[in-house]
Computed example of a mutant assay.
Amino acid sequence: MHKIEQLTMKVAVMQAAPVIMNGPATVTKTVELIGQAAARGAQLIVFPEVFIPAYPRGLSFGFLVGSRTEAGRRDWQRYFDNSVVVPGPETEHIGAAAAEAGVYVTIGVTERDHINRTLYCTLLYFGPDGTLLGKHRKLKPTGSERLIWGEGDGSTLTVIDTPFGRVGGLICWENYMVLARAAMYQQGVRIYLAPTADFREVWQSTMRHIAVEGRCFVLACNQYVEKSMYPDDLEYRSELDSQPEVMCPGGSCIIDPYGDYVAGPLLGEEGMLLADLDLGALTRTALDFDPVGHYDRPDVFQLIVRREGS
């Protein structure tokens, strides 16, 4: 199950802008980008956190402690209505594109639960046959994100088997949750995904640390977003007046198990990072450090992960 069947792997990290608050148009853009990356030989294509229908940076949805506004609720309903039911029509379109290209695809979406009306920050995994292989719901939204998204649970700490080794990851600041990282390492992750909305310089240090700590390739993917991309008719559009024109410059990167950049960081534009990963490095870097093998001390430390759903 853990055997790596291929020695190299071409990956594409898509630093792109969604069509903000427009789910169908962003799905169309996603399908187009999958085709472009596949045409350049990519075998795994990674999209950012909540690419559909966007990371709602700068918006409050009318929330203040102790009060809400009806105008803010209308903005939130627009966000809700353009979110993704899993599985649903949007996942069928993306899966069909993955199948046509014969590639693995991972993409961040705001998931709308098919029963309740709670939204989740979710990472989806598609196989080269178009199958929806799994999903991960963000365990702990950060700061004001908690006004938008509910919390995931241990049942979606997803890792998938591929011919390139096990692929899995965490979303944005979940990567600062030490035990969440340990849970991923414990499952044998080799290609570690980190879709994010964080463009700070210190985030680059985090990504390099995880690559060295996990002895894995890290694929960090962010959006590139300008203020002008937001719809003009949002109820709270004026909240963006104080924001810079480039609201998210990106910072996507690909890092090897030694902690060195293979590609990126990409800043200031939309773009595609392509890289051929030398999968043999996964074994070579384990010579002196293996976080869940010879450098582990299970006689001293134990990790318990509750995987049942809430």
Rank of each mutant, 00 (worst) to 15 (best):
C253F: 13
M21I: 08
V300H: 14
T30R: 12
V292F: 07
G259W: 14
P298H: 12
Q43M: 05
L123H: 12
E111H: 00
E100K: 15
T91S: 07
A182T: 03
G154D: 10
G134L: 04
W76A: 15
V103K: 09
P291C: 07
Q223R: 15
T206A: 14
T162Q: 01
G95K: 01
Q6F: 06
V292C: 11
P87V: 07
G152A: 08
R68Q: 02
A54H: 09
R190N: 15
V305Y: 07
H2Q: 11
F47Y: 07
R73M: 13
E70F: 03
D241P: 03
A182Q: 06
E174K: 14
V167H: 00
Y125R: 02
P298A: 11
R200W: 13
G259F: 13
I52K: 12
T110P: 01
F80I: 03
R40T: 03
Y185L: 04
T30E: 14
D113N: 05
G95F: 01
L133P: 06
E270W: 02
D260E: 14
E145W: 13
P195S: 02
G150L: 12
L179S: 09
E5W: 02
K3W: 10
G168P: 09
L282G: 00
E270S: 07
V11W: 01
A197F: 13
Y236R: 04
H294T: 07
Y192R: 05
I171R: 08
A71M: 03
T162S: 04
I107N: 01
E151K: 15
L33S: 11
Q36G: 02
V31K: 12
L147C: 12
H209V: 03
I171H: 10
P257V: 11
F289D: 06
V225L: 15
P18C: 06
I4L: 05
R57N: 06
T28C: 10
M1R: 14
R40P: 01
G271C: 03
Y236V: 01
G95W: 00
R112C: 00
D153Q: 10
G150A: 14
D75S: 08
K29W: 09
Y176S: 14
S155G: 10
I255M: 14
Q204A: 14
G169F: 05
V19C: 07
T106Q: 02
C172E: 13
E32Y: 10
P249L: 01
L133W: 04
A220Y: 05
I210H: 06
I45S: 04
S205R: 11
A101T: 07
